[in-house]
Each structure stands twice: as C-alpha cells, then as structure tokens.
C-alpha cells in the first residue's frame, strides 16, 4: 500500500517535472519537488516497515533490491538538483525512477528472498554497493541525455525550450562525470564480491560486466584522450542500457539473483 502511494507520488512528480520543462512555471517546479519528497518519505516508511515486518534487510530479493536503488536514486537526484542547480534534473531522472519502480511487476512471480543458507555479510555488502552504483548511474544517464539535448540546441543555433531550461554544457558534463566517478567504484567492488561469491557463470554477472567495461572505457578515454561532452554522454547511455539489461536478467532468469 505504502509502496503504491510512493509510486503514485513519483508518477505525479514526473508529470509535474515534465510539464515544468515545457511550461517553465516556477510553481510547477515547487510542486514537482514536493511530490518527489513526499514519494521518497513514503517509500522510506514502507522500506522501514518491511524491514521490521520481515526481520531482515529490505533488499534480499531482486525486486526489493531494485526498489532500494530507486530510493537511493531519488535521494541522489534531490541532492544533485540543489548542488548543481539543475532544476530540470527531475524531468530526466524521475521517468527512469518510475520505469524501474514499475518494472518489478514484470518479474517472475516465483522470485523470493535469498535462501537463509546464503545469508552472510558479503551478500549484504555486494547488494548495497551494487544498489548505490545503480543510483549514481541513473544520474549519469540523465546527465548524458540532457547534455545531448542542450548540445543539439546549441549546434542547431535555434534556441528552444531546452536551451532556456537546461544548464550549460560544462555543468552537464561535470554532473555526468561526477556521477560516473561516484558509481564506478561501487559497481567495481560490488561486481568483484558478487563474482567471487557466486563462483560461477551467471547471465547477470556477464551483463553487469559488460556495463562495467563500458564505464571503465569512458573513464579511460577521458583520462587518456580527453573524451568529454558528447562522447561521454553516448557512453553514459550505452552503459545504462547494459545495466537495464542486467536488471532484466535479474527479473526474468532463474539463478542466485532470482530465487
């Protein structure tokens, strides 16, 4: 029930944030922020309630874990919006949040929490790190999309709604890069622990390894050849696509991440 309410608040916030992008009415921005915060608070309560009820962390089944990563992504979005003064950020992060929130409805109904035999501190660390990584990459992805939109406006030399609403290319590039440097260590360590712990091939590990390679490539390109801007934005989108595939694998395939 609480989760549904939180989702409704996120859907509402998404609608408001997108309308704000077009209408540019300050009141809409405040409403969107309020709805986002309300959704986040509701989700926090829901997660705490579930933890108390089940007597275990709220992320020991795959759909639960996605829910927690949504929670972290919203928190990160609210923070980055203020930190980087990008009022349009919500319009790009919230749709992803909603899609991720709804995605668990397509999960195999027989997915259950991890068998008690698998409980140990490493799995907790693995899951938490992977979740934080995903939250940062949601921001990385949103930053990339925004960069491409603003760059297109500037190249076309015909200012439209995005030109006025989105911040400078420099700010967007910085946001994308910061999110990448935040998410990458989490993903790396989470992946290593996960792989060691699983000790065998798993489609999920394979697809998250693909995402890891893409992100590693982006970082290397920036350090060595000064890749930034459009190229970094393309890689942010590519990397996120790989992460989404990973989540799809988690939802639909049997294996340690499923049952």
């Amino acid at each position: 029930m609480l989760f549904t309410l939180a989702l409704i608040a996120y859907v509402l916030a998404t609608g408001l944030a997108l309308t704000y992008l077009i209408q540019r009415e300050e009141g809409l921005y405040r409403l969107a922020t309020a709805a986002t915060m309300a959704g986040w608070v509701l989700q926090t309560i829901a997660l705490v309630a579930r933890t108390v009820e089940a007597g275990r962390p709220p992320f020991w089944s795959f759909p639960e874990a996605v829910s927690v990563s949504v929670w972290a992504a919203v928190l990160l979005e609210l923070w980055a919006e203020r930190q980087y003064r990008i009022k349009a950020l919500g319009a790009f992060v919230l749709p992803v949040v909603v899609v991720l929130s709804i995605s668990k409805t397509v999960a195999r109904p027989d997915i259950e929490a991890i068998a008690p035999a698998l409980h140990n501190v490493w799995i907790t660390v693995h899951v938490v790190l992977a979740l934080l990584g995903i939250a940062a990459f949601v921001l990385n992805f949103a930053g990339g999309i925004m960069y491409l939109l603003q760059e297109r406006q500037l190249k076309a030399r015909r200012p439209g709604a995005f030109y006025y609403r989105l911040p400078s290319l420099e700010a967007l590039d910085r946001l994308t890069f910061r999110a990448l440097t935040l998410g990458f260590p989490f993903l790396t360590v989470g992946l290593i622990i996960g792989a060691l712990w699983a000790g065998r091939f798993d489609p999920l590990i394979a697809s998250s390894a693909v995402a890891w390679v893409i992100y590693a490539f982006t970082l290397a390109g920036r350090a060595v050849a000064g890749w930034r801007g459009r190229r970094a934005a393309y890689f942010a989108i590519l990397g996120f696509a790989a992460l989404v595939l990973t989540l799809g694998a988690g939802f639909l395939m049997p294996g340690p991440h499923g049952s």
Binding site: Q150, L154, Y163, Y164, S168, L169
Partner: peptide
Amino acid sequence: HAVSVSFAAVELARKIFG
C-alpha cells in the same frame, strides 16, 4: 535573456562554458 547581438553572444558562451 539578451536582446542585443553582442549580449546574446555572451549568453551563448555561458551556455557552453558555464
């Protein structure tokens, strides 16, 4: 927003470089 050509150039520079 700028309504002269030279200020429009400054504003564009800000949209690119912050």
